[in-house]
Design a protein around this nucleic acid. Structure first.
Lengths: 337, 337
DNA sequence: CATTCGCCTGACAACGGTGTCATCCTGCGT
DNA sequence: ACGCAGGATGACACCGTTGTCAGGCGAATG
C-alpha cells in the first residue's frame, strides 16, 4: 500500500483537505465531532503527514542535530556520550523530536555539518558538545541564527545558551575530601587541554590546592584514552616526590591508572588513592572499586534537550547548571601512609 | 542572511533554474564550462539544496534510521553500540548520508518509529539491531517495502538482507581453546535469551561441548548487565561441581564475573578461566587482562551501512558475514588445576 | 545557404503539505 | 420570517526542488 496523503483522509472522512489540516494541527475552524472523526480515520489509515512537505510549507522539521568529534576509540569506551544521548532522546521523544547524529573526523568537518544542516533545512536546532576555547562553532551558529544549546561551560558559549554542571564545585569537593584524608601531594591526569571544561577543572584544581596549601599540584594533560593515562601515571609515580592521590578526568583513564599503578607495584589505596571524574558501572566492578565524582549524565541530556526545544519554540531560555557531580567514596581512596 | 535557493544561484550565474538543477545533479544538458561556473557560484554562496524540497520532489532524503531498545544503563556501558554507530557513520558520511537515531523504551514503540519514519518519508532506509526470534519488525518492514538491513544473524531476517558474524565458528574456536587447555567443566553466562544471536550462540555452545564430550555445559541466561552476570557467576561457582572456565556473552558481564569470582575467593586464572565475547580497552586494562573474542565491530557497521546504501540505490544485495570474532588469549585463561 | 546538433531558456506541472479567503450551508435566536 | 454565527467548503497561492518539453540561438557541417 502506498502512503496516504491528507487528500485520502479527506475523501475517506468525507470532508475537505482544509478541514483535515485544521483537525490534525489542533487549530480552530472545525467542530469537535468532525475533528474526532477525522482523527479516527487518520489513525485507522496509519496516517502521518509527510515531514518533508510539512517542513517545506514552513512547519518545523522536528529534528535536532548533534555532532561528535572524539575518535571512535574513545567514544566507544566512554559511557558519557551514550548516557548523554540516552538522556537527550528521553526528552526529545517526549516532544516527538528525533536526533540526527553525525560523527565528524575533525573540527572543520564538524562545522561544515552544522552549516549544511542549516542550509539544507534539515534541523530545527542543534546541540554542541566538547566546546573548546574560541570554538568557531559558537560564532558560526550565532551568526546563522540557528537555535543551539551548548553542552558545556557557559564561559565559552558566547550568546548561545549552555547547559553544564558546576565543575569547580565538584573539584573543590574532591580535593577537600582527599585533603581531609590527609593527602598533601595530589596530582591530576586531565582531559584534552583545549576543551573548555578541562580548562575550568584545571583552574579549579590549581585554585583549591593553593587554598589548602597543597604544593605543586600538577595537572598532566592526557586525551581520555587509557594509554595516555597509563603513561601519565607512570611519569607521575616515577618522579622524586610521587603523589599520594591521583585524580583522573574520566573513568577510562582512572581504570588505566589503577592498572598502571599496580604494574609499578604501587598498591591502591594503601600507597595511592584514586578518584575518577564521572562514574560508571565499571568503577563499581573494579577491585578496589573506584571513588568517583558521580553525576546524572542522562539528566544533563534531558535538560539540554528541554532547553533546546524551548528555544526552538521561541521561548526565552537562559543558561543553566544541572546538579553538580558529587563524590561517591569507595575503596580506591584512603588516608596516605 | 537568508538561505539561497536555486533561483538565486541561477540569477547570480546568469543561467536558468533548469540549468542549475542539471549542473548540481551531474546530469547532461549543460556544458562543462557552464557547469563549472554554476558550481563555483553555488560554492561561493554556500548553497545546499533544501533537503525537504528535494525529498518532496522525489529525490532521496539521504537519511537512514536506527532505533536502539536496550535500557540506557546497558547502552552506556557497552562499547558495542557506540563502536557500531562509529562504523555506520564512517560509511554513511562517505556517501553523505546522515543517521537518525532513536532510543525506544519497548518493542512496540520501536516498531512504531519505523512505521512513522516510513509514512513521514523521513528516511530512505533503516537498520535493525537486536533482532529476536519472530521479531515483528522484520515482517513489518518487509510489507512496507522500506529498504532495511538487519544487523544480526540471517536466520531471523526473513527476506531482509542481514549482516552479521559467524558466531558459531567463534564459539567453536573459544570452546576448543578452553578444551585444549584441559578444561572439562565449562559454563556460559549468556545474553538476553530472546535475541536471535543469543539463541545461535547457545546452540553452538551446546553443540561443540557435546562434540568434545564436555558434560553439562550449561548456559545461564542474563541480560548483559554486570549485576545479572555477578548473580549468575555466584550461582555457578557455588554449585556442587563448579566450572573451571566461564564464557560471558559480553565484556561488561565478564568484568563483573571476574569481580564476583574474586569476592568468592576464586582466583583467576588459577582456579577459573574467563573468556569475554567482544573485546574492548577495558578487557586489556583489567588485572588479569581478559581473554576475549575480538571482532572489528566498526567494520560490521561499515558493512551494514554499505549494504543498506546499495539496497537503497536499487542494487541487488545479499546477506553477508563479516569477519568472525577470533580469540585473543590473555591472562584470564590458563589450564585448570 | 540550409541543415543539424548541442546548449540553453522559459514555462509549467508535479510533490504534499500549510494557510488564506470568499462563500455556502446549517441551525439558532429573535 | 429574518438575520446571524459558526462549521465546512472548494479554490488557490506558496514553500523549493525535480523533471519535462517546446523552442531559440549559435556554431559546425553538408
Amino acid at each position: 500500500m502506498k502512503r496516504p496523503t491528507i487528500a485520502d483522509i479527506a475523501r475517506e472522512a468525507g470532508v475537505s483537505k482544509g478541514a483535515v489540516s485544521y483537525a490534525l494541527n489542533g487549530r480552530p475552524g472545525v467542530s469537535a465531532a468532525t475533528r474526532e472523526r477525522i482523527l479516527a480515520v487518520a489513525e485507522r489509515l496509519q496516517f502521518h503527514a509527510d515531514s518533508n512537505a510539512r517542513a517545506l510549507a514552513g512547519a518545523k522539521t522536528r529534528v535536532v542535530g548533534l555532532t561528535l568529534r572524539r575518535p571512535p576509540s574513545t567514544l566507544g569506551v566512554e559511557p558519557f556520550f551514550m548516557e548523554l544521548i540516552s538522556g537527550l532522546e528521553l526528552e526529545l521523544s517526549r516532544q516527538s523530536y528525533a536526533l540526527l547524529l553525525q560523527m565528524a573526523p575533525g573540527r572543520d568537518e564538524e562545522l561544515a555539518f552544522y552549516r549544511r544542516w542549516f542550509s539544507e533545512g534539515r534541523v530545527d536546532g542543534v546541540l554542541v558538545c566538547d566546546v573548546n576555547v574560541g570554538d568557531p562553532r559558537v560564532s558560526t551558529l550565532q551568526e546563522l541564527g540557528l537555535p543551539a544549546v551548548v553542552i558545556g561551560p557557559p564561559g565559552v558559549s558566547g550568546s548561545l545558551t549552555s547547559v553544564w554542571s558546576d565543575d569547580e564545585q565538584s573539584m573543590v569537593e574532591a580535593v577537600e575530601y582527599l585533603a581531609a584524608l590527609g593527602h598533601r601531594r595530589i596530582a591530576r591526569v586531565g582531559g584534552i587541554p583545549q576543551l573548555a571544561h578541562t580548562a575550568i577543572r584545571t583552574a579549579a584544581f590549581a585554585g583549591v590546592c593553593a587554598r589548602l596549601g597543597i604544593a605543586d599540584a600538577v595537572t598532566v594533560p592526557a586525551d581520555y584514552t587509557g594509554e595516555a593515562a597509563a603513561r601519565a601515571t607512570r611519569k607521575l609515580l616515577g618522579g622524586a616526590h610521587p603523589p599520594t592521590a591521583l585524580l583522573y578526568d574520566n573513568d577510562v583513564m582512572a581504570v588505566a591508572g589503577l592498572t598502571a599503578a599496580r604494574e609499578l607495584g604501587v598498591s591502591v589505596p594503601a600507597e595511592l588513592s584514586i578518584v575518577a571524574w564521572d562514574d560508571s558501572p565499571i568503577c563499581r566492578l573494579l577491585h578496589p572499586p573506584l571513588t568517583a565524582l558521580t553525576r546524572d549524565i542522562g539528566a544533563y541530556g534531558e535538560l539540554a534537550a528541554r532547553t533546546l526545544l524551548a528555544a526552538i519554540a521561541g521561548e526565552p531560555v537562559t543558561s543553566t547548571h544541572g546538579a553538580p557531580a558529587h563524590l561517591t567514596p569507595r575503596g580506591s581512596t584512603a588516608p596516605p601512609r
